[in-house]
């Protein structure tokens, strides 16, 4: 069912796995920051990170001899890493909507509050 990694691919395999997670975080981080700061450069960096993630998934799949189910799993992983940060960013935006008006309320000190009460 599985064919182990070849000795000569050992480093490539573990390195590509690490690159997947780090690039995934890079893609998520650059995307979120680019959207918040309205800096297109960060969004481009996000997609560059995703490209690196996709390349790493390909290397991982090749060196791990993925076939059948495992290729489907790698495809799902690519889709998941692409879509999850976008969905989470939308969720963040929706959740924080209207928050600023609440946070603009006057600043107070707990001691003053205690004195008042």
């Amino acid at each position: 069912m599985i064919e182990p990694v070849q000795l000569e691919d050992f480093f490539l395999n573990v390195f590509s796995a690490a690159v997947i997670v780090v690039s995934g975080a890079g893609y998520a981080g650059f995307y979120a920051w680019g959207k918040i700061a309205r800096r297109p450069g960060f969004v481009i960096s996000a997609y560059a990170s995703y490209a690196s993630l996709a390349a790493a998934v390909w290397v991982l799949a090749e060196t791990s001899h993925f076939e059948g189910f495992w290729r489907v799993a790698a495809g799902l992983m690519l889709i998941g890493y692409f879509a999850a940060p976008l969905a989470i960013f939308r969720l963040c935006t929706a959740m924080h909507a209207g928050e600023h008006s609440e946070h603009d309320r006057p600043i107070a000190n707990q001691q003053q509050e205690e004195e008042q009460s």
């Binding site: 997670v21 920051w33 963040c92």
Partner: peptide, 19 residues
């Protein structure tokens, strides 16, 4: 393979809050 996803989700939210 799915287990890192919650961690990546946290990255987005941390960046959002920091920004």
């Amino acid at each position: 393979a799915l287990e890192p996803i919650p961690l990546v989700a946290m990255v987005v939210h941390s960046i959002y809050d920091a920004g």
